[in-house]
């Protein structure tokens, strides 16, 4: 089903409201609005989209992180918010760069309660610090884990495994 909103319409409205805080739009194969914004403006932007009379972006699909180890020092972490307007059948993604040293961003648990566990998960795997989160602890991994496993510098495989001979696995 077609969406009642177009990407241009929402992007233009965002640019009018937030000016330079709205950065570059990224084209993706799913044709959803996919836009980079500044980390400081994310909270206000999501709040504004939620309260907007027409857009009514009132559903949070997911929050996740991305680690780009080859980016510049202050752009190595990306946080992604997947948002959905159920009434308009319109989806968008907000992305923000964060520095790898101390990737901090304001929590959105005051807007979406669902963000609580999603932010905990993002902290668990990427080490992104959500300021003012009510309970920012690990949610899926064991509590004693001392690193953030989805960061690229850590091996996906278990380092202690002994029965795998790399010669037999083409490595």
């Amino acid at each position: 089903m077609e969406s009642k909103l177009t990407n241009e319409q929402v992007l233009t409205a965002l640019r009018e409201q937030f000016g330079d805080a709205v950065g570059q739009e990224e084209q993706t194969t799913d044709h959803y609005l996919n836009v980079y914004v500044t980390a400081e403006s994310v909270h206000a932007m999501i709040e504004w989209l939620y309260a907007h009379g027409e857009f009514k972006v009132q559903f949070l699909t997911n929050i996740t992180g991305i680690h780009f180890p080859d980016n510049d020092e202050d752009q190595k972490m990306v946080i992604v918010y997947h948002l959905h307007s159920l009434q308009n059948n319109f989806r968008l993604r907000l992305k923000a760069y964060l520095p790898i040293e101390n990737p901090s961003i304001h929590t959105i648990t005051d807007i979406f309660s669902a963000a609580n566990w999603l932010e905990r998960e993002t902290y668990d795997f990427f080490g992104i610090n959500f300021v003012n989160h009510p309970n920012l602890t690990r949610i899926l991994n064991e509590d004693s884990m001392d690193y953030f496993p989805m960061r690229k510098e850590y091996h996906l495989e278990d380092e202690t495994r002994q029965d795998k001979d790399n010669r037999f696995f083409g490595r």
């Binding site: 496993p149 495989e157 495994r161 029965d163």
Partner: peptide, 13 residues
């Protein structure tokens, strides 16, 4: 017995 196909950080080997 050995972790099987789950050679990953989260699974006991």
């Amino acid at each position: 017995s050995s972790g099987g196909i789950f050679d990953t950080y989260s699974v006991l080997q």
